[in-house]
Design a binder for these strands. Structure first.
Lengths: 118, 118
DNA sequence: TGGAGACATCGACATCCTTCTATGTCTCAG
DNA sequence: CTGAGACATAGAAGGATGTCGATGTCTCCA
């Protein structure tokens, strides 16, 4: 995993900017946003995020998520890490289990960036 | 460029689904959406899209866009192609020049997918 | 204390992506 | 018709990404 993936420390959300279509995005901002979109731009990670969000109480244990895919446990763990490091998923360990929860603010900011000004 | 990038034919927009956080995204849908996000998930392409959208009359000529980057002309051409094939940019040739215009519906659909249900 | 189970990390491999240079295609002016 | 300019395509190189099996770490229970 290259360092540039985690531009935001886990838990931090996008301090967002004026909408994409309103004014030219500064290079620096573009380089901040792109990793976030890249984290989202994978079918497995999209489904993971969606599964977590739609789960009861808004959080899901890794064990639940593993079962939903035909992928190895380390692969799922890797994707969850990407989502977590990009600030899209919150992590909390309780006993033996690890639970993930969607950081709705980050998603909302992204949506505002893309869809704002339309 | 692998074939899977252009899931949508150029000009077609996302026939969008229920929001990401509302119900588990079906695998098929996730595989349809991911290429769109992937098209957006690059700092150069983010700035290209933003530049086009913010340009006078909502469209920009490739010659204008080339000047805004420290990248070779074929590289910009490549990124524009990715954005076009994903349905985010509309292409129109007038004389010697090629103009690109943002397909706002595609952006709006994406934003609704990500931010809907928050 | 020791074993089992839940996750994370490591290292490897194949594929994909970004970028480049070189070259092709199309259109207009002269 | 020929040259120049705008843009696209082709092919190659280097780095990034997705996936795996093997292994490590932590926590709980017996």
């Amino acid at each position: 995993m290259s360092k540039s993936v985690s531009v935001l420390s886990p838990g931090e959300t996008v301090a967002c900017c004026s909408p994409l279509v309103s004014s030219p995005l500064p290079q620096e901002t573009a380089e901040q946003i792109a990793p976030l979109l890249k984290a989202l731009a994978d079918p497995v990670r999209l489904r993971l995020l969606s599964l977590v969000a739609a789960h009861a109480d808004g959080e899901a244990c890794v064990c639940d998520l593993n079962d939903a895919f035909d992928l190895s446990q380390p692969t799922i763990s890797h994707h969850l890490k990407v989502l977590h490091e990009s600030g899209l998923l919150e992590r909390s360990k309780r006993g033996v289990w690890v639970f993930y929860r969607v950081q709705r603010a980050a998603l909302a900011d992204l949506a505002a960036l893309i869809g704002g000004g339309l």
